[in-house]
Design a protein around this nucleic acid. Structure first.
Lengths: 158, 158
DNA sequence: GTCGCTGCAAAGTCTTTGCAGAGAG
DNA sequence: CTCTCTGCAAAGACTTTGCAGCGAC
């Protein structure tokens, strides 16, 4: 699967690509590439979690304590990234949204109502049915999301 | 399909049933049946729309202008109904939640990003796959929701 | 009568906005 | 240099809470 002679692992290459896309996006819109924006993208990339604006802000303060970053900038950047479809947001029953990098493959979510853990999955059959349904109704699908709520294996054992 | 000799249509009977369930629920928990609570249930039942707390509040002020109902009561009642699984809430990208009566059959949502219209649908194949997936992962499903975003037929023609 | 419910207003969250100085191009 | 970004603090939007009087049981 991986090339034995490269020093870059797949993950690094992927991030460089993502960063390029981001810079391109900014340039195309006459926007500027700033350290804050880079750090936010980096944090999103390096986190396996679905982040809230607040948790993302905390993460940045931890990992880049030298850089002062306001929560407002986090919100503004997330909005920008979402508009450009580079990140996707999930809304839950509780207040607030969680964000994830949209560059990842499309997937749906299993959400544990006990511990809050989010597990991702993809099911081809469901994806196919979704397309069949929208085609039938003449609905032009842009995106879709599915959440299944319940109690995960771990929490059931508690 | 319908009984030709009854004077009640199915809809009325359904509502009486719903109301009984609600009263039962209240009694079981030592709570009281108030006019405000009844009106809120009625409005939810008579609306085909997915209501926000605010739109529900407006509706009540319109239809029952004699009754003073505070927005706080709407929130409190919706929370109560949601806790008891009599209504379900949907969260969207924008802030705020929308509520619908849970007594209706389970269904998923097609959301038009142009005009905001929500269309409901059910697909047995998808429902089956969802159960298959959670069974496989040992996840105890309590509920699930699916939203497909895009542009509805109407808006495409504009 | 008792104890929960209600409206009101105040307090809380989470998010957005205005502004003046900082910084990217 | 110009024009966008940023942090800060203030403003907004939505929701929850405290309280005193009201009303269901």
């Amino acid at each position: 699967m991986s090339n034995l002679t490269t020093n870059f692992d797949d993950r690094t290459i992927e991030y460089q690509q993502l960063l390029e896309d981001f810079k391109m996006l900014l340039k195309k819109n006459g926007l500027k590439f700033t350290i804050q924006r880079e750090v936010i993208l980096e944090m999103l990339y390096n986190s396996d979690e679905h982040l809230t604006p607040e948790s993302l802000h905390h993460l940045i303060q931890e990992k880049h304590s030298n850089l002062k970053t306001g929560i407002a900038t986090v919100y503004r950047t997330l909005a920008l990234l979402e508009d450009s479809h580079m990140v996707t947001s999930l809304s839950f029953g509780a207040q607030g949204k969680k964000y994830e990098l949209g560059a990842k493959e499309h997937h749906d979510h299993l959400i544990c109502t006990e511990c809050g853990t989010i597990t991702e999955f993809v099911d081809e059959d469901i994806e196919k049915r979704q397309h069949a349904i929208t085609d039938e109704l003449g609905f032009q699908m842009s995106e879709h999301s599915m959440q299944i709520y319940g109690i995960c294996k771990n929490c059931q054992n508690k």
